[in-house]
């Protein structure tokens, strides 16, 4: 073992894949990561007709907004335990010491988290649209807005989680930090759906949502890496 041999240059793609596969294995080991947000999403939506009124007309009016708020709260649930276990076990420290930039590793984890927890929300949203008596031509717009909106919520929420990961009562503080950042996403997504319900052209809101997605995709991992480096010392 001649230890002065230079290390095999760790390509970024191999590290990205390693983290992605690790997250999938973890999700396979603990399926509650997949099922819990979905059932929470379902239950929160069923509360609204019980709370407000089952009249088809009112449900139709509040439908998309209710589904979006429920998705937002479900993602808050997912975001709350993104880095908590890794931080407590010291995995975050070891990631910081690897030769691959930390933002890349964080991006891999967030992408895997989206596939594991948020894509399921997308899949059951038509069923919820049925529950809320949403017209059928609005459903594609609803799913499109969720497809683009949920990653934004996840990336932005992860920043909040990275900042509060070392505090033990992080959950309460997390919602305080992150909810204000969720408001623009909610506004544009619901106005997109409303435009679709009057079958007007909603490409304007769509463009804004996509730009939000691109901005958060690039800046969130960097911010999260900085936050984790800060909380680790």
């Amino acid at each position: 073992m001649n230890s002065n041999l230079p290390q095999a240059q760790l390509s970024y793609w191999i590290a990205f894949k390693a983290i992605f596969v690790r997250e999938l294995k973890l999700a396979w080991q603990k399926p509650s990561q997949i099922i819990q947000p979905m059932v929470f999403f379902l239950i929160v939506v069923t509360l609204f007709p019980l709370g407000i009124s089952p009249a088809p007309k009112t449900l139709q009016m509040i439908g998309p907004g209710v589904i979006w708020i429920a998705a937002l709260l479900a993602i808050m649930l997912v975001v709350d335990r993104l880095f908590r276990q890794d931080f407590q076990e010291g995995t975050i420290e070891a990631w910081l010491l690897s030769t691959v930039p930390m933002s890349l590793l964080v991006a891999a984890k967030l992408l895997a988290a989206w596939f594991i927890s948020c894509s399921v929300l997308l899949l059951i949203s038509p069923v919820l649209a049925l529950l809320m008596n949403v017209e059928s031509q609005v459903i594609p717009a609803l799913m499109l807005s969720l497809l683009i909106g949920t990653p934004i919520l996840l990336f932005v929420g992860a920043i909040g989680n990275a900042l509060t990961v070392s505090l033990n009562q992080g959950g309460v503080l997390l919602s305080l930090l992150v909810l204000p950042l969720y408001i623009p996403v909610l506004i544009f997504a619901t106005s997109l759906i409303e435009a679709a319900s009057f079958n007007m052209d909603y490409s304007g809101q769509l463009a804004i949502l996509v730009s939000m997605l691109l901005v958060s995709c690039f800046f969130a991992p960097v911010a999260i890496a900085a936050a984790l480096k800060n909380t680790v010392n």
């Binding site: 819990q36 059932v39 069923t46 089952p54 449900l59 049925l130």
Partner: peptide, 27 residues
Amino acid sequence: AWWVWDARLTSELILLFLYLGVIALYN
């Protein structure tokens, strides 16, 4: 309509959530 918020169907839906709760707790 595929789904109507009728009393029996709604309490059936809530019963489903109770079952999911028991199964999730066990696992």
